[in-house]
């Protein structure tokens, strides 16, 4: 039992963060809160990739003469890391666009609360 927890606890936490983020997006009425929930979802996914790429006892892919070069188990796969760099950039750009939209909405309606917004739009 402990072994399962030890092996997979990171995934449980990530699922929790993912769900918290989704909850924020769905339930929270403030648009800024929705954005925050969205960035939590994104962080959870990015971390998920990093966690899944982790191997116990392995290190970064920098050639170490002390280690065997041909044993792949001794090195972490660098590909997920590089991919997540891209994903982080994408996430930040998305946030930038959403903030721009929020500012436009606020300037026009002077509020970020969804019920109030819908009321004012009628």
């Amino acid at each position: 039992m402990l072994e399962i927890i030890k092996g997979y606890y990171a995934y449980f936490f990530l699922v929790a963060v993912f769900c918290i983020g989704l909850f924020g997006m769905m339930v929270k009425r403030n648009l800024m809160k929705k954005v925050m929930g969205m960035s939590m979802v994104q962080s959870a996914v990015i971390l998920f990739w990093i966690v899944s790429a982790f191997k116990d006892g392995a290190t970064v892919t920098v050639l170490d003469p002390a280690r065997a070069v041909e044993d792949a188990d001794l090195y972490l796969n660098p590909l997920p890391h590089t991919l997540m760099l891209t994903a982080i950039v994408v996430a930040v750009v998305t946030l930038g666009v959403s903030f721009a939209l929020l500012i436009v909405i606020y300037r026009r309606y002077r509020t970020l609360e969804e019920p109030l917004l819908l009321e004012k739009m009628q």
């Binding site: 929705k34 994104q42 959870a44 998305t94 959403s98 939209l101 909405i105």
Partner: peptide
């Protein structure tokens, strides 16, 4: 009303991508 609908699209679209 376009910015708000774009914002909704953004949140859902980003979730989809996630």
């Amino acid at each position: 009303r376009a910015p708000l609908s774009a914002f909704r699209y953004l949140t859902l679209g980003t979730t989809g991508a996630a």
